[in-house]
Amino acid sequence: MDYLKLICHRKPERSFFINGYQFPVCARCTGFYIMFLIYFIYTYFFYVNYNHFLILFSILLLIPAVVDGTSQLKGLRESNNYLRFFTGLIGGLGLGIIIKAIKYYILILL
């Protein structure tokens, strides 16, 4: 299972457990991946207009995850798994929008 460390650090103290089994990714990555999936399913069924406002909004959605992760990395504070998960959900939506916007604009330019 070392190959999973390529997508997440998997630290036990930063991961969720169900019935004694650790999730394959940490709490923040769990939020990111869940929101990726939800957003990609949503965009499959509904049209999204990727304008400048939406892209700016998606960048703003990434800020809480960056602040939480950076402040924890620098030792300024200790986060908890629920906050990590929530910032992962918000950041996952932002990153999902950015990825789909890049795909959208690449397909338009081709």
Rank of each mutant, 00 (worst) to 15 (best):
K74G: 07
P24M: 02
G94I: 08
L61Q: 04
E78I: 12
Q72H: 07
M35V: 08
C26E: 01
G88M: 11
L61N: 07
I106H: 14
L109S: 12
V48D: 07
I90A: 07
A65P: 09
I41Y: 08
P24G: 02
L107E: 15
I102L: 14
R14H: 11
R77L: 15
G31K: 00
I106G: 13
A27K: 08
L89M: 13
R84H: 09
P12Y: 01
G75S: 08
Y21P: 02
L37I: 15
G20M: 05
D68W: 00
P24A: 02
Y39E: 00
R84C: 02
L37S: 15
A27T: 04
L93K: 11
P24E: 00
S15M: 08
E13M: 05
F85D: 04
H9I: 04
I55N: 03
I98R: 12
T70V: 15
M1I: 03
F16W: 03
Y44G: 12
C26L: 05
I102P: 08
E78M: 12
I59F: 13
L4T: 09
S71G: 07
Q22V: 01
K103G: 14
P12N: 09
L60R: 01
Y39F: 10
A65C: 11
G69A: 10
P12S: 14
Q22S: 07
S79A: 04
S79K: 04
L93R: 07
I99D: 09
F53Q: 10
P64E: 05
E78H: 12
I59G: 13
G75C: 05
N51D: 13
K103P: 08
N49V: 09
F85R: 00
F46L: 09
L73K: 11
Y105R: 12
V67W: 00
L89E: 12
N80V: 10
R28I: 04
K5P: 07
G91I: 03
F45C: 11
Y3M: 01
V67N: 01
G75F: 05
F46G: 03
L107S: 15
L110W: 14
Y50I: 11
L6Q: 05
P24H: 00
G75H: 09
K11S: 09
L54C: 02
G69T: 11
L56K: 13
L76V: 09
C8A: 01
L56Y: 14
F16R: 03
I59E: 02
Y50F: 15
I38S: 06
S79C: 02
I97E: 05
L110F: 15
V67Q: 00
C26V: 04
V67D: 00
F46Q: 10
K5T: 11
I98C: 10
L83E: 09
L56A: 14
L56G: 11
D2W: 10
D68Q: 02
I55M: 06
Y82D: 07
I34T: 09
R10L: 05
Q22P: 05
F32A: 04
I108C: 12
G69C: 10
G31S: 01
D2F: 11
C8L: 03
T70D: 05
L89I: 12
L95V: 04
L109M: 13
K11C: 10
I63G: 03
R77S: 12
V25E: 00
Y82M: 10
V67H: 00
M35A: 09
I63H: 00
T87K: 02
D68V: 01
L76C: 08
